[in-house]
Amino acid sequence: MDPNSSKKHLINRLSPEELKERLANETFKRTTVSFYRYVIIDDPAEMRDQLFSAWNKLQCYGRIYIAKEGINAQMSVPDHFWQEFKEQLHAIPQFKDIPFKIAVEDDGQSFLKLQIKVREQIVADGLTPDEYDVTNVGKHLTAKEWNTAIEEGAIVVDMRNHYESEIGRFEGAILPDAETFKEELPEVVGKLQNNKDQKILLYCTGGVRCEKTSAYLKHHGFSDVNQLLGGIIDYTRQVETEQIENKFIGKNFVFDNRLGERISDDVISHCHQCGEPCDTHTNCANKRCNLLFIQCESCKTKYDGCCGDDCQTYFLAPQDEKEALGQRLVFKRGKRFHRPNQTA
């Protein structure tokens, strides 16, 4: 008997085309939700299999990371299974009463399948355990408290990557020029080195990165560290329900098929190809490139969804010509988009 036969149902084996067709044929609504918790999980692999089995039966999709330090999840849950999903998750001792952040905009297309991966950390940071204490974190501020702190002159720091803050941010925030959270942490400490006694405000998408950042800053001697409760997602919910001023401008980047949800009507970024106002991210249609960049509808038509001429040539070429073209053309343009006349 195959020792792995009992676990074959814990892996999704459908093709991308089959996954898209399955989602398109659904007749029910879904809710996109995110949540995280730093908590000790003794056996992440066992927890992974337990959750996959339960959530697969409920037709949940999403991207979930589990580690010994906790869970970080972005999911799409069928509305008719929402209560059962919530009760099942909260019944697990480590996740009792875990708070949810519901998507601001939701078309039900955020995820195509269920992926639960065991990782060393739920957010990769490159830190060693002695560089922070996640039980000693900053104060969590409500939307109203956050707005007040901004008005009183606190220092605001965006703890997301450059491509996230490019399309939306709190006005006046420090925007680290980083590709990853791992790169961002030392950069932020360096930028704030002379502000250790001032009030620091940290924000990110849902709060998980700020939780660790606040612990890291406190470990490095910062005395007044604060973080936005529930991140941008829950800030928006509080702004709407409490009818208070929205200080976030633009879009909130999200790590699912939507790639963004609008928070305000402001468009603060530009198409990477023509420079026109635009805040729509896309991945290059040439899958050998897959570069994430901002592209307006006009350039999408002009370049067939590609990031440049080489990728467009390859993308449109007949299948029997692709191999030769792939050897001649260069697709790897780095993580950032650069126009031909731009310098890095």
Rank of each mutant, 00 (worst) to 15 (best):
T282D: 11
G108A: 05
L141F: 12
I102P: 13
T180W: 07
I98M: 13
D107K: 11
S76W: 09
P99C: 01
Y303P: 05
G126E: 02
D224Q: 12
R22G: 15
A103Y: 09
E87C: 15
I233L: 11
R30Q: 02
T31W: 04
C296F: 04
Q327H: 15
D265M: 03
I66V: 15
E26D: 01
D266P: 11
N290Q: 04
N246K: 06
S34P: 12
F315Q: 00
K86A: 05
D42S: 13
H338E: 14
W55V: 07
A324H: 03
E164S: 07
L23P: 00
H220I: 00
N246E: 10
L89C: 03
E183M: 15
C278G: 09
K287V: 11
G190N: 14
K20V: 00
G206P: 13
E166P: 02
D177A: 13
C311D: 02
D97F: 09
K247C: 07
S15L: 14
H272R: 15
F181I: 06
F28S: 12
H220Q: 01
H272E: 11
T27N: 12
I232P: 00
W82Y: 14
V134M: 07
Y163A: 15
Q94F: 12
Q83H: 06
H220A: 01
H90K: 05
A173G: 14
E145S: 02
E145T: 00
R237P: 02
V134T: 08
R160L: 02
Q295Y: 03
C271Q: 05
L316H: 03
E164C: 09
A149C: 04
D158C: 04
V39N: 06
D279E: 06
S5K: 07
D43F: 08
Q59G: 03
A45D: 04
D158W: 03
I150A: 02
T128P: 00
Y65I: 13
D107L: 05
N226A: 04
L217A: 02
C296S: 07
I150H: 07
V123M: 01
G275D: 07
K322R: 10
C311K: 05
P129E: 07
E152Q: 14
G250F: 08
S34R: 10
H162G: 09
E145N: 01
T128H: 09
C210H: 03
D310Q: 15
Y303V: 10
F85N: 11
P44A: 07
I71T: 06
E179S: 05
E261H: 08
K247L: 10
Q238A: 00
E321F: 14
G108C: 03
Y303H: 15
K218Q: 10
S76E: 11
E240S: 08
I66D: 06
K199N: 14
S110E: 12
R328I: 13
C299P: 10
P129W: 06
N283L: 14
L201M: 05
E171C: 07
R336T: 10
E69T: 10
R262M: 02
E171W: 09
